[in-house]
Amino acid sequence: MELQTKRLFRWFWPWQDEQEEAWLSHLAGERGLHLVSLAPPGIYTFAIGEPRAMVYRLDYQYLKGQDRPSYLQLFRDAGWEHVGQMSNWQYFRRPVVEGEENEIFTDPASKAEKYRRVLPLLVLISILLGAQLRSSLYSRWPSTGLEVTRFLLFSVLMLLIYSIVRIGLRIRQLSPG
């Protein structure tokens, strides 16, 4: 029997990882859509099958080639299946079993660390966009195309800064004191 697949597109901002986990669990449990692969910027391919209660969890790790096998083995030993990755987000899942641990992060400190790993890239992209926007403001040849570019740069920059603030607040919430 050939595997029936379905493709969905959905965009998530970096501070929406828990919503994304819930969305994937919902699709698996209610509609029998089980994630097969991912591709940027948000293309999700699912196998169509029987509904099954699954937990999805996202880690954020930039994995160097030599670290990858041992990282994936550790999760496998703990009962997690690695489904794929999108940029540096690592997607894991396991069937829901009564009394079994459903979290990959079991204390607030390590969860805060995950969000700290997300920040540097967002800050870097913001700085690059900011520099680009700044140089576009000093362009001596005004045109409609330039206006549109400026507007787009500005919008994306605002959303990135909003993401950084949201993630910063999450880190603070998870930190003691």
Binding site: A78, W80, I104, F105, D107, S110, K114
Partner: peptide, 29 residues
């Protein structure tokens, strides 16, 4: 890693369970 998970659960009398994300992060740090 997996040995650490099992041993920690045992010596903490079940009070501390380590998820793989927490453990991998701890090893790195």
């Amino acid at each position: 890693g997996y040995g650490v998970m099992q041993k920690v659960e045992q010596i903490s009398q079940g009070a501390v369970r380590l998820g793989p994300g927490t453990l991998y992060g701890a090893f790195t740090t």
